[in-house]
Computed example of a mutant assay.
Amino acid sequence: MKVLHIITSLELGGAEKLLLDLIPAQKKQGIEVDLLVLDTKGEKFLEEYRKRGIKVYTLKPNNKFSLKNPFEIAKIIKENGYTIAHAHLVHAQIWTSVAKYLNKKVVYITTEHSTHNRRREKWIYKFLDKFIYKSYVKVIAISEATAKELVKWVELSVKKVEVIPNGVSLRAFIGKPKERKGNNMIMISRFHPSKDHLTVVRAMEKLPKDYMLTLVGEGETQEAVKREVLMLNLSNRVQFLGYSNSVATLLKRSDIAIQSSNFEGFGLSALEAMATGTPTVVSDIEGLADIVGDSGLLFKLGDVDDLVEKITSLENSRFYYEKSKAGIKKSLTYSIEETAKKYIDVYKEEMK
């Protein structure tokens, strides 16, 4: 068995972070696994992938919109003898679904990483998506909520969809239950319409002035969030850190982790925070809430007052310690090794 994961880009996001841990975990379980990236502009993880011994292919066009992509994908698959082609994110899904018709001897699989995307806001894209997902023998969904929304959107047979939750590299993130030392909060998330940074910033205005917030990540909505920080005179309390490859260390040093999202397929950042023992407060939405549950705190989507209430409830030292301990316990059920095993089981089943 030889697997090629194909992804749109290596920007800061859940799918990109997942593969960074998933591919080495699959390799340790005895299969050959490599990565193909359509577009490396704006990449954040490429060097990290190479440091972990992962072979990374890039395409000559280096453009996720190029019509040459399916031909390049099919060529790499054929010349290197891959038996499984596994696509992630929309542009990789589109071009790999076309590449299938250039090389039908390979098993084509895709993973759906979100409960929502912009295409689902316009009915005309339903026809395109039906074609895309029909091309794959199996669609893996990262949560029950992701599976439910996809089946509803493209009317897929539930037999074609397999739910495999994301996993976390527990060795890197796992911590011990901790006591609260300060009021330092952190949100690790790309700046994207799927995320709700503004509610967190507006909550800062209502929190005591000794609360500090660090925002880790980059993206298209960052400037709008920065403007809100300036308008609310919070520049001395809100820090924009940009991209960081020291996520585990940052989480362990923080007192509270926030994950505020408009929609979310899974919530890998929240899971990583829980693993470090940092009490985690997240939006009460499908996908994210399913992962965190009672092990963290849920606030109503976009409700500033509810978020403030949940954050300040952690000032109770006993309650804080309980949530720290509960988060670690819950995270142990989501190991990257188990995720890798389940993916490999799907590959084997589809190759029969």
Rank of each mutant, 00 (worst) to 15 (best):
L307D: 05
L301T: 09
K310L: 05
L332W: 00
G302R: 10
K341D: 11
K300E: 11
K329P: 00
S324D: 03
Y320S: 11
S313N: 12
K341V: 07
D306E: 13
K341M: 05
D303F: 07
D345P: 03
L301D: 02
D345Y: 00
Y334R: 00
T312S: 13
G296T: 05
L301G: 05
A340S: 09
G302K: 14
S295Y: 09
G293L: 03
K310Y: 03
I311A: 00
E315S: 12
D294G: 15
L301F: 04
G327N: 12
E338L: 12
V308F: 11
I328Q: 08
L297E: 13
K342F: 04
D294H: 06
Y334L: 00
F299W: 12
N316P: 04
L307M: 09
I328A: 14
A326W: 00
Y343R: 00
T312N: 14
L307G: 06
D306T: 00
S295V: 08
G302L: 01
D303T: 02
R318H: 02
I344H: 10
I328G: 14
V304P: 02
D345V: 07
G327T: 12
V308Y: 10
L307R: 01
I344D: 07
Y320F: 15
I328P: 06
K300R: 11
Y334N: 02
K329T: 09
D306V: 12
A326T: 03
A340D: 10
S313G: 11
F299Y: 15
D294P: 05
G327P: 05
E322N: 14
I336H: 05
Y321M: 11
